[in-house]
Design a binder for these strands. Structure first.
Lengths: 91, 91
DNA sequence: CATGACCGTGATACTAATACCGGTATAAGA
DNA sequence: TCTTATACCGGTATTAGTATCACGGTCATG
């Protein structure tokens, strides 16, 4: 295997990331945000719906800047999705 | 055109990002950091040398966590590479 | 010199991100 | 109803990230 296919957990993390971005977008349209971030609306839609679960670093960076989100917060919250279920997963 | 090829500026930004990560790695070996971050040493090398100019968001996230770097700082410093030359760059 | 560890590069394989197209569904407005 | 705007979806095209293999160079050690 030369390139590990995305695991279900990674896809779930991608959906979580998308939900995060969608929430931050709020009422604004996809086209507006995509244009401001310099990406296509289709790409933004794929990221938001989790169909592009591992987008490029700079794509998220420019989106975060447009949406007013912090990269560290995004990374932390998404890391929680793949975090080992120590004992407080559900709670 | 279906997928915009990376511009020279984007590649330069990738090299800058790589230099940033390499500096943060310091004395530690590539293999050590790559293993800790859960990626292959070759991939880390490509990122550090700028041969993978737009790595995945989560790849950088896990690397930043391993190296003790802040995502916002990385994004900000890399954005400066592609930032519009306000007044003193081009000439 | 031989060996091993680390780094670098090239080639190769395969999956995924990005972008565009056409179609569809829904809601708002004329 | 018709039109418009927005968003979702499938397909397609192309580039790029990720991983492995192979080879070469450097340095330290024997």
């Amino acid at each position: 295997m030369v390139r590990t296919p995305l695991t279900p957990l990674e896809r779930e993390r991608g959906r979580f990331l998308g939900a995060l971005l969608r929430q931050a977008r709020g009422e604004r349209s996809m086209a507006e945000i995509a244009a401001a971030a310099g990406i296509s609306a289709e790409t933004l839609r794929k990221i938001e719906t989790g169909r592009a679960p591992t987008p490029a670093f700079f794509t998220i960076a420019t989106l975060a800047a447009t949406l007013g989100l912090g990269m560290d917060e995004i990374a932390t919250r998404c890391a929680a999705v793949t975090a080992p279920p120590e004992d407080s997963a559900a709670a």
